Simulated scan of single mutants.
Amino acid sequence: MRSIASLMNMDGRVAVITGGGGHLGQAMADSLAELGCAICLIDRNEAALADAAGKLREAWGASVDTLLVDLESEAERADVAPRVQELFGRADVLINNAGFVGDSNLTGWVVPFEQQEISTWRRAVEVNLTAAFHLSQVMTPLLRANARGSIINVSSIYGVVGPDMSIYAGTAMGNPAAYAASKGGLVQTTRWLSTVLAPQIRVNCISPGGIARNQPQEFSERYIQKTPMQRMGTEEDFKGAIAYFASDLSAWVTGENLMIDGGWTAW
C-alpha cells in the first residue's frame, strides 16, 4: 500500500493553470509546485504572470513557464496544447481557474438585472464556460497520454445556489446573472466530462465561497453572518483541495463538486 507522501508526490508531472497570475491561481500553483509539479501559468496579464512565475521559482525551485493567452480568443485557446507540448513535452493537470471579472470600461455587468447586457453575458460565458470546455478539449490528448490526467474546474457557490442580494446593499458590488449561469454550467460540464473522459482522465470541480479581498466592511460583515465558519475565505483555504484533486490522493474520485465555502451552502 502506498504512503500518503507517495500519493501526493507530483515529481515529473506538469500542471497548466489558467488565471495563473491571479490570487487564487497563484495559490493553486504554489500548492502543486511544493509537491514537485512543473507549472505552466496562463493569463492575459504579462506582468502578473512574470511576478507569479518568479515567486514559484524562488519558493520551490520549480520549473515554470508562462503563456500569454486571451481566453476570449478561440484561436489563442487552440494554440495552448501545442505550446505546452513544446515547452514541457507533456501535461498531467489542467485547472480551468480563470474567471471573467470585467474592467472599468465594461457596461451591463454589475447592474440591475434589467440593465444587464447580452454582449457582456456572451463575454462572461465565453471565458467562464466555453474556454474551459475548449481547453479541456484541446488538452485531452496530452492529459490522456499518461492515463492519469486530472482536470479541475473552478466554479462558485453561485453556480449552485442563488444570491442573497441584500448582502450587496449600499455597495458598488453585485451578482450578474451571466456569472451564475456560466459557473453553474461549469459544474454540469464537469459531470459530463467525468464520464466521457474516464478512465484516463478524472474531472472534478471546486466551488469557492467568498474570498476576503478588501471588500466594503458592510458587505463582509453580512457575508460572515451567513457563513457557519464565521469568516470569509483566504487563498490558502484552497491549496489542500487542489493538491487532493490533482494528485493520486483522489485517484478514484471523478465527477465531484467540492464546496469550499465555510459552510455557506450548508444552511
Rank of each mutant, 00 (worst) to 15 (best):
N146D: 15
A147P: 02
A147H: 15
R148E: 15
R148Y: 09
G149F: 12
G149T: 12
G149I: 14
S150T: 06
S150D: 10
S150R: 02
S150P: 06
S150H: 02
S150I: 11
I151F: 00
I151C: 05
I151E: 05
I152L: 11
I152K: 00
I152W: 03
I152G: 00
I152E: 00
I152D: 03
N153H: 12
N153V: 06
N153C: 10
V154A: 04
V154T: 10
V154I: 15
V154R: 01
V154Q: 01
V154W: 05
S155K: 01
S155C: 02
S155D: 05
S155H: 06
S155W: 02
S156W: 08
S156R: 03
I157F: 08
I157W: 12
I157V: 15
I157E: 07
Y158C: 02
Y158N: 11
G159A: 08
G159N: 02
G159M: 10
G159T: 01
V160S: 04
V160D: 01
V160K: 04
V160P: 00
V160Y: 10
V161A: 07
V161N: 09
V161Y: 07
V161F: 00
V161K: 07
G162N: 04
G162K: 10
P163N: 07
P163Y: 12
P163W: 06
D164V: 09
D164Y: 10
D164K: 09
D164I: 08
D164C: 08
M165S: 05
M165A: 05
M165I: 14
S166W: 00
S166Y: 05
I167A: 00
I167Q: 02
Y168L: 04
Y168M: 04
Y168Q: 01
Y168P: 01
Y168E: 01
Y168C: 01
A169W: 00
A169S: 01
A169C: 00
G170H: 06
G170C: 09
T171S: 07
T171E: 03
T171M: 03
T171H: 03
T171N: 03
A172Q: 11
A172I: 04
A172C: 05
M173I: 10
M173Y: 13
G174Y: 11
G174K: 12
G174V: 14
G174A: 14
G174D: 13
G174M: 09
N175M: 15
N175H: 15
N175A: 14
N175Y: 12
P176T: 13
P176C: 13
P176R: 11
P176M: 10
P176Q: 09
A177E: 09
A177Q: 07
A177D: 12
A177V: 14
A177Y: 12
A178N: 13
A178K: 06
A178H: 05
A178E: 13
Y179L: 11
Y179E: 02
Y179C: 07
A180M: 14
A180S: 15
A180E: 13
A181T: 15
A181R: 01
S182A: 14
S182K: 04
S182R: 04
K183W: 05
K183G: 12
K183R: 13
K183A: 13
K183H: 11
G184P: 06
G184C: 03
G184K: 08
G184E: 13
G185S: 07
G185N: 07
L186Y: 07
V187N: 07
Q188K: 06
Q188L: 04
Q188N: 09
Q188M: 12
Q188H: 13
T189F: 11
T189Q: 08
